[in-house]
């Protein structure tokens, strides 16, 4: 449990102490949202293959 707490606080401190990293996280989150919530859901729907026919 102590190890898990240390890992948790390691990440928490890391995120709290970020300076230029915040801007990068914003880019990453916007990018992932656009890719998975917009492109994947609305534009890149899997298409049924026809090669077997």
């Amino acid at each position: 449990m102590n190890l898990l707490r240390r890992i948790f606080y390691f990440y928490l401190d890391g995120f709290r102490q970020m300076t230029w990293g915040r801007q990068l996280w914003i880019i990453i989150l916007i990018k992932l949202f656009v890719m998975f919530a917009i492109l994947r859901l609305f534009f890149f729907q899997p298409v049924a293959p026809t090669i077997a026919q």
């Binding site: 492109l39 890149f44 729907q45 899997p46 298409v47 049924a48 293959p49 026809t50």
Partner: peptide, 8 residues
């Protein structure tokens, strides 16, 4: 994504 959509 393109494999599933454009290159099924």
């Amino acid at each position: 994504f393109e494999f599933g959509t454009n290159w099924s």
